[in-house]
Computed example of a mutant assay.
Amino acid sequence: MATGEYNRDQRYISTRIAADGPYPVEAGRYRLVVSRACPWANRAIIVRRLLGLEDVLSMGVAGPTHDERSWTFDLDPGGRDPVLGIERLQEAFLKRFPDYDKGITVPAIVDVPSGAVVTNDFAQITLDLSLEWAAFHRPGAPLLYPPELRAEIDEVNAVVFADVNNGVYRAGFASSQEAYEKAYHRLFDRLDWLSARLADRRYLVGDTITEADVRLFTTLARFDAVYHGHFKCNRSKLTEMPVLWAYARDLFQTPGFGDTIDFVQIKQHYYQVHRTINPSGIIPAGPDLSGWLTPHGRESLGGRPFGDGTPPVRAV
């Protein structure tokens, strides 16, 4: 019997770029394809910038809207990615798997010489940028996945993914009242848990920014602009949850985070692509986003954003 619950297709291409695999880590060989609208891709944009991988891993940016076939490069001249020479990300997937029948998703890493996709496993991509690409990190790059904290980071990431990152989608795409309310309560129960956890600590795990903060931030950044209204996650706005709002502003104002956010493209994507939820395609004019740059006061909790490292300095 159908329950109306939304179940994300998590059949990703699990190939990894690693020192001992068929796709070894090499400077200049690969292209990270993202969309600034997508929270999963936004993670990879942030991690690439924090680690200073811009010169060794190029980045192609797809437009904020797409059809059922694929993300497209309509932001580029002629509608083609200037490095890969393709109009649709789908072309890179079909280059490797001619019968590919799963989702064409971002982030994806493409092998430039062959033009074939390597992986779209978004969770593993950011971990591998920290671990497998370490030889190419900038001087002063932060440790986003330190060995002594990995078990705790993994534990936090698991519940945040299930209840928050994917939880907003479970609420937004639910097709029954029961499924929606179940997802709604699960989401806000977890946000309350996160508020309590962050009330007396600056970051989710340890006293520096880690992979856990990156993963939560990209959902919080989209909360009021999209999820509150579009996905009916409307018990509270982010701006009405004092601890999480201050935490999100703290990260937003940290180099590598807010400078990767494009609220215009975020709203264009959700409100124009999800026509089953928003048939008119009308993009809301609000909310007022000026508050993201207001003082957050989280410095009083201590913590060092980059640990013994330094912030990134180059523009995205």
Rank of each mutant, 00 (worst) to 15 (best):
P64M: 06
A37M: 08
R36H: 13
R48L: 05
P22S: 14
P24T: 10
S35Q: 04
R49S: 13
T65H: 05
R49M: 13
E54Y: 04
C38I: 12
Y23A: 11
E26I: 03
V61T: 11
V34W: 02
V25C: 06
I46C: 12
L53Q: 08
L50Q: 12
A27Q: 08
L50I: 14
G28R: 00
I46F: 12
G28V: 01
Y23P: 00
E68G: 09
L53A: 09
R36Y: 13
E26W: 01
E26F: 02
W40H: 11
S35C: 08
C38N: 12
R31A: 03
R36D: 10
G52K: 09
L50C: 13
C38M: 11
R36Q: 14
S70W: 01
D67K: 06
G28W: 00
R29V: 06
V56K: 04
L32C: 04
M59W: 02
S35W: 05
L51N: 08
E54A: 15
T65D: 00
R36I: 11
P22V: 10
R48T: 05
R43K: 15
M59K: 07
G60S: 06
L53F: 12
A27E: 06
I45G: 09
R36M: 13
R29D: 06
A37C: 09
I46T: 13
C38T: 06
R36G: 08
R49Q: 15
V56W: 07
L51K: 15
I46D: 09
V56A: 10
C38Q: 06
P22G: 14
G63F: 11
E26T: 07
V47Q: 03
G60R: 02
A44L: 09
F73L: 08
A62P: 05
R31W: 00
D74F: 11
W71E: 01
H66R: 15
W71R: 01
V56F: 12
R29H: 05
A44Q: 03
D20S: 14
T72H: 13
G21Q: 13
C38E: 08
I45C: 14
G60C: 05
E54L: 12
I46W: 11
G63Y: 07
R69D: 13
F73G: 00
D55R: 10
E54M: 05
G52H: 10
R31M: 02
F73A: 04
L51C: 12
D67V: 04
I45R: 15
Y23M: 09
V56E: 04
R36T: 14
D20E: 14
G60T: 03
S58C: 07
H66M: 10
I45Q: 15
G63M: 08
R43Y: 14
A27Y: 04
F73K: 01
G28K: 01
L50W: 07
W40C: 12
S58D: 05
V47S: 06
I46R: 11
Y23N: 10
P24G: 08
Y30Q: 02
